[in-house]
């Protein structure tokens, strides 16, 4: 029995199904990358895992039991493509707020420390509006180390990142899974993440059920 798994998942948007009959299984210490063409439902699948979207059919389980909102809010770290940073507030203020609502530490020292680690220490008192998109993303990614969670769900994390930022993130993820964490990453570049399970979501688009069963 896998630690984190989903079975027979399908996702409806409006009058059509984006994907159907999709299943996945991940053990602790593994990376699962979600790949596939635009609009195939990578983000929807991640939102389902986070409990932000109800599956049309199927269920998502942790150690064989369906995940509820109580479990999810304590064990999942959801990092969307959007950047929930308020441009008028400084980097440190934004992180204080986000870390606080996610149940992480909200004292300035701890946040400053993790910003230093991410190489963003010198920006910490700048308003976010001064930061580039890549710097904003890196700012958000420091939350991964501030808030301790069992599962990371990350949507397209390498967007806007330069090589340095990308390496930093890849190292961070591999350290995390080495310590027994689970990371699910929607990405167009699965080769970045070293040894990982690849799930091609576009293979589960509507009407492919018979093909897969025949194969």
């Amino acid at each position: 029995m896998a630690v984190f798994s989903g079975y027979n998942l399908s996702c409806a948007r409006g009058h059509r199904l984006i994907f159907e009959d999709l299943s996945f299984e991940i053990e602790s210490g593994q990376i699962l990358t979600l790949t596939g063409s635009n609009g195939c439902g990578k983000t929807s699948l991640l939102r389902m895992m986070a409990g932000l979207l109800d599956p049309f059919t199927g269920s998502i389980q942790w150690k064989g039991e369906n995940t509820g909102s109580d479990f999810l809010s304590r064990n999942i770290l959801w990092m969307a493509q959007e950047t929930p940073l308020k441009p008028q507030l400084s980097v440190i203020e934004n992180l204080q707020f986000l870390s606080c609502i996610m149940g992480g530490p909200s004292d300035k020292a701890a946040i400053q420390e993790s910003l230093e680690k991410a190489g963003l220490g010198r920006f910490s008192h700048y308003p976010v509006s001064y930061l580039s998109m890549g710097q904003r993303r890196r700012t958000l990614l420091t939350l991964l180390y501030l808030v301790k969670r069992k599962i990371w769900l990350i949507d397209e994390p390498t967007n806007h990142l330069d090589k340095e930022g990308r390496d930093h993130l890849v190292n961070g993820v591999s350290d995390y899974v080495k310590q027994g964490g689970i990371a699910v990453i929607a990405t167009h570049r699965p080769e970045l993440w070293g040894s990982c399970t690849i799930l091609d979501v576009s293979a589960f688009r509507e009407g492919t059920k018979e093909e897969r069963q025949a194969a």
Partner: peptide, 21 residues
């Protein structure tokens, strides 16, 4: 704004009650 930039998602996933928000 909170809806668009994803802050609302994080609030809904927050371990604290949304009423605080």
């Amino acid at each position: 704004d909170d809806m668009k930039d994803g802050t609302m998602d994080l609030l809904m996933l927050s371990p604290q009650p949304v009423s605080f928000y």
